Simulated scan of single mutants.
Amino acid sequence: MYLDNFVDYLLYERNYSPKTIQAYRKDIEQFSENICLTRKSCSLNDLNVGAVRRWMVSLMDKGYASTSVNRKLSSLRVFSRFLLRENFITSDRLGLIEGPKNEQKLPQFVRANDMDRLLDGGFFASDFEGVRDKLIIEMFYSTGIRLAELVGLNDKDVDVKAMQIKVLGKGNKERIIPFGKTLSQGILDYRILRNEIKGQSSSAFFVKADGSGVYPNLVYNIVKHNLAAISTLVKCSPHVLRHSFATNMLNNGADLQVIKEILGHSSLSATEVYTHTTFKELKKVYKQAHPRA
């Protein structure tokens, strides 16, 4: 009952995405299964500092990364605060627990000259799917949108005249992202071919050859296949293109606050990671270029 109420709270009051809610539920159920494994019954009293700490240690012993453990701890903290708010428990002490320190990994990105080589080097066919696939890559790179946001684009959300797109981000928050002439021309070329497709059965902006909307796995594979042609990165994903957008914007003098708004980050701290990436790049260039480096 408590977990169902919590899910309703996340869905209707916090406007969390189904994917996020599913992750929260899975974390809480995993914790419950772990502490109840050797007992006949469990209660909310088991959601205490000692039990949570023991569970975190067991996760680390099983090889879970610190980022995963901290995410699961975050799920339990939100759940505990909800229980306190609804008077299901009388105190919440999970805020006293410190999670394991995360190893800070800098976001991977594709260099601007490699992206130019991919988009301008004749890698894409001139048929419908080739034009669409190129536009998918270019839209990720030119706007920094997320995979779910791109898949969720409707035709009415893409305004070539105003050179902007309207996206529905995390927490159902809308934001407007500007784009330039190059992407604008790509959109016009794509729409001409797309509108020739008979039996278009979707209002989606990006569609398959049968007229129905694209889906996440298809878009992911399009990006992976094409990025692998010009990049040696282990993971060639849409999120790498989002990182590439932010890093290359910052390298070319864009204000961090502007990048935050375009990316749809809730706080500036999430955007500041790209400053570490650009400084690392500066050091690398310095060592390569200066004769006494």
Rank of each mutant, 00 (worst) to 15 (best):
F140A: 01
Y141L: 03
S142D: 00
T143F: 02
R146M: 04
A148I: 09
L150S: 02
L150E: 09
G152T: 06
N154Y: 13
N154V: 06
D155G: 07
K156R: 12
K156T: 10
V158D: 04
V158W: 09
V158N: 05
K161T: 12
M163Y: 03
Q164C: 02
Q164P: 11
K166Y: 09
V167S: 03
V167Y: 03
G169L: 01
K170M: 06
K170Q: 11
G171K: 05
N172L: 06
K173N: 03
K173G: 01
E174K: 14
E174Y: 12
I176D: 01
I177N: 05
I177F: 03
F179N: 04
T182S: 01
L183A: 04
L183E: 08
S184W: 05
G186R: 06
G186H: 10
I187Y: 08
D189R: 15
Y190F: 13
I192P: 07
L193S: 07
L193C: 02
L193G: 06
L193R: 15
R194G: 04
R194P: 13
R194T: 03
N195D: 11
E196P: 09
I197W: 11
I197P: 15
G199T: 11
G199R: 10
A209N: 10
A209M: 11
D210S: 05
D210M: 06
D210C: 02
G211Y: 09
G211C: 01
S212N: 10
P216V: 01
L218H: 11
K224G: 00
I230A: 02
I230Y: 12
S231R: 08
S231D: 01
T232E: 02
T232I: 08
L233C: 06
P238A: 00
P238T: 00
H239F: 05
V240L: 05
L241E: 05
S244D: 07
T247F: 10
T247S: 02
T247M: 01
T247H: 08
N248Q: 09
N251L: 09
N251Q: 13
N252P: 14
D255E: 04
D255Q: 03
D255P: 15
L256K: 12
L256Y: 12
L256T: 15
L256D: 10
Q257H: 13
Q257Y: 14
I259G: 05
I259M: 07
I259W: 13
K260D: 01
I262L: 15
G264R: 06
H265A: 02
S267K: 15
S267M: 00
L268K: 13
L268G: 14
S269E: 09
A270E: 14
E272P: 14
E272V: 07
Y274E: 07
H276G: 10
T278D: 00
T278P: 15
F279K: 14
F279L: 09
K284G: 07
K284T: 13
V285Q: 13
V285T: 14
